[in-house]
């Protein structure tokens, strides 16, 4: 056991140190002044920080990599199996739909991980110590994630559309730009919703499970609900608004034009906005 070798003197080495000890009262004279210039932090700093965070972990590479493989890979396979006649009055981006139905799970996973991994590792305390304005951190995460998800999914859908058009284009196809934007918007919003849910639940597995339930249950449940007379209307609404069906509408798979899905997109936007509001309220109230 170490015993105190010498009692530390109460007065510390005062060389070149201002007389901080002489003034113990509430006079906040800076005892130590750093040469680093003081900057008032703002959202831009938080965005830069979150951008560094999202691109410096493996989970981002994995989820987005699998997403691209699914959307582009399945899309090109489908494109190869179709003929020019199949695209009479539907957008050339349709082959991307099949990969997106699976790929949306990747974006959901990434959305959740962007925040829940910080809670899981304890990083969140370091983050909030550096940026005590919690709402700014969450806002930056939402913006950066949405931007990344939107760009990647728009690229994937657009790429599939271009390749398909070059394979099956006959000069007079339907305009498909809208389906790129709406398809990318839909899956990105799902990811943003996942981020908000992750922020509220603070637990990766829990939040991913909740989001999968939200996507899959309305797609499966109607099969049972439609059997009951009283629940029929609910079942029909679910059938109409579930995530896979929303994507199908966006890509014109049901009506044969690439401009559907507006109501479904609106509903998702509303739900996402509500979840974001809830996440902000809880974030401010709870201990980290």
């Amino acid at each position: 056991m170490s015993t105190p070798q010498q009692p530390p003197t109460q007065t510390p080495v005062p060389q070149a140190v201002p007389d901080w000890q002489a003034a113990p009262g509430p006079s906040y004279t800076a005892a130590y002044t750093s040469p680093i210039p003081v900057t008032r932090t703002h959202l831009g700093h938080a965005l830069a920080s979150e951008w560094t965070k999202i691109k410096s972990v493996r989970s981002t590479i994995w989820t987005l990599g699998v997403f691209l493989v699914l959307v582009v890979g399945i899309g090109l396979l489908v494109a190869a199996q179709t003929t020019n006649e199949d695209f009479g009055n539907v957008p050339y981006t349709i082959p991307a739909f099949f990969g997106l139905v699976l790929g949306q799970i990747c974006l959901i996973t990434l959305g959740v991980l962007v925040i829940s991994s910080e809670y899981g590792t304890g990083m969140i305390r370091t983050t909030f110590t550096a940026s005590p304005q919690r709402h700014r951190v969450l806002a930056a995460k939402l913006i950066i994630f949405f931007a990344v998800a939107f760009v990647v999914s728009a690229f994937a859908i657009g790429f599939v559309g271009l390749v398909t058009e070059s394979m099956h284009g006959s000069g007079e196809g339907t305009a498909w730009g809208g389906s790129v934007v709406k398809g990318a918007l839909y899956v990105s919003l799902l990811g943003v919703l996942a981020l908000a849910v992750g922020s509220m639940l603070r637990h990766s597995a829990g939040a991913i499970t909740a989001m999968l339930g939200l996507v899959l249950v309305p797609a499966i449940l109607p099969a049972f609900l439609l059997m009951s007379e009283s629940l029929r209307t609910i079942g029909e609404k679910m059938l109409d608004y579930n995530a896979p069906n929303a994507l199908a509408k966006i890509f014109g798979l049901d009506e044969g034009n690439g401009s559907g899905g507006g109501a479904q997109l609106g509903l998702l936007a509303g739900v996402t906005a509500a979840a974001i509001a809830g996440a902000f309220v809880l974030l401010d109230r709870r201990d980290v």
Partner: peptide, 12 residues
């Protein structure tokens, strides 16, 4: 990168 994201959040 851990330190970089902290630094950026404070404009360091």
């Amino acid at each position: 990168n851990h330190l970089l994201c902290l630094a950026q959040s404070n404009g360091i």
